[in-house]
Amino acid sequence: MIDLIHLYRAQFKTTIAEQFQYRGALVIWLTGLILEPVIFLSVWAAVARSQGGAVDGFTANDFAAYFLLTLIVDHAGFTWIMWEMEYWIRQGNLSPLLVRPVHPIHRHIANNLTFKLLTMVVVIPVVIVLGFVFRPSFTITPATALAFVPAVVLAMALRFAVEWTLASVAFWVTRVNALNQLYYVVFLFLAGMAAPLALLPEPVRILAEWLPFYRMLGFPVEVLLGRLTPQQVAVGFAAQIAWLTVALVLLNVTWARGIRKYSAVGA
């Protein structure tokens, strides 16, 4: 365990040093990340105003609260492994990682967390500034704040495990971009990225509640905003833990098989 902490600390330093080499790219990356929820927010706020102030009970200020929090949770949870894994496998860059006495996943977790810590320094002030523009209305109670912490941590873990598993498909499929696109579209609607789940048609909403995507983004946001009943929060945590378990099992199986294939055909 101490060795792992040591490893993560070394990896943190490396990633920070690396990221500072690419300040320009970092700014562009962040701009895209911030722009997306802001666009959804602007559209929904406009719709709310044109419908006399609210859509299904969501006012423009409610939308502001929802999408600005979505921005933060999405930023905390997103990964780039689905793009990176293909490169690792195709270019043979995975090989040197495999002959080291550490699982490559640690490197990616550490990279991911470091990047988040680094960029949160920019994201939080941006959200505060956007708050002055869009005037979100929300009340955070100690109870919702307390529930939000595990909800967002589980959401991050779940998203990481799911996306790492999907990324492993690159062991079998040469072009994974199509899959990535499909995943993105599904995520956009079923995670609560494009709209709060309450605004979706009933069957889609039910589907979204059963699938894991909503648990990676919309759920923690709604926990913090206090939009859920205690029972819904409890069900949500159970769903997060159940999906995380499934995802971790799948991750281990696909990774082991993928590596086996990689090692069979010519690493």
Partner: peptide, 9 residues
């Protein structure tokens, strides 16, 4: 810095 990382690995 790369060497430091290897030291940890």
């Amino acid at each position: 810095d790369s060497y430091e990382l290897n030291r940890a690995i």
